[in-house]
Amino acid sequence: MENYTYNSFTLQLEGLNVSEDYVYTVFLFIFFSYLFIIVVNGGIVVLVFLDKNLHQPMYLLFWNLSINDILGSSIILPRLLVDMLHPPSERLISYYECVIQAFIIHMCGTTVQTVLMIMAFDRYVAICNPLRYAAIMTNKMLVKLTVSAWGVSFVLVGIMVSLTIRLNRCMTMIRGLYCSNAALFKLSCESVF
Rank of each mutant, 00 (worst) to 15 (best):
V152L: 13
T146N: 02
V125W: 06
A135D: 14
Q101C: 08
L60A: 01
M119Y: 07
A126I: 10
S94I: 04
S74T: 07
F154P: 00
I93W: 12
N64G: 12
N129V: 04
T114L: 13
L71E: 01
M137V: 14
I100H: 02
L145V: 00
G151V: 02
M137I: 12
F62Q: 07
Y133W: 12
S89N: 09
Y96I: 14
G72S: 05
D122R: 01
P88L: 10
R123S: 14
L61I: 05
S153L: 00
I136T: 05
M141S: 05
V147D: 00
I76Q: 12
I76T: 04
T110M: 12
N64L: 09
M117D: 01
I67W: 13
V115S: 03
W150L: 08
D69Y: 03
L77T: 12
A135M: 13
T146Q: 01
V112I: 11
P78I: 05
F121H: 11
A149E: 04
V115T: 09
L81N: 09
T138W: 04
Y59Q: 03
Y59M: 04
L131G: 10
A102I: 06
V157Q: 12
M119G: 05
E97S: 15
L80G: 02
I75Q: 04
L81W: 08
F103C: 08
N129D: 05
R91V: 01
R132W: 14
Y124Q: 12
N64C: 15
D83V: 02
L61M: 13
I100C: 09
L92G: 07
D83M: 09
S74Y: 03
Q101V: 08
C128Q: 15
M141I: 11
L60C: 04
F154W: 01
Y59H: 09
S89A: 10
N139Y: 07
G151Q: 01
A120H: 10
L81M: 11
N139A: 07
L131H: 15
N64W: 05
R123L: 15
F121M: 10
R79H: 09
I118A: 13
A149D: 06
M141Q: 05
L131P: 03
S73V: 06
I93V: 14
M119E: 11
Y96S: 13
L71K: 04
R132Y: 15
I76V: 11
A126E: 13
L71N: 02
P87T: 14
D122T: 07
V99S: 10
Y95E: 08
P87R: 11
L80W: 02
L85S: 02
L60N: 01
S94F: 07
F62N: 06
M117V: 07
V82A: 11
V152I: 15
M107N: 05
L85E: 03
A102H: 02
D69P: 01
S89Q: 11
F121N: 09
I70Y: 03
S94D: 15
F62C: 09
L116F: 06
T138H: 07
W63E: 04
V157S: 04
V125I: 15
L131S: 14
A126D: 12
M84H: 04
L116C: 09
R123M: 15
M107C: 04
Y95P: 01
L142P: 06
L116I: 13
Y95Q: 09
I67P: 00
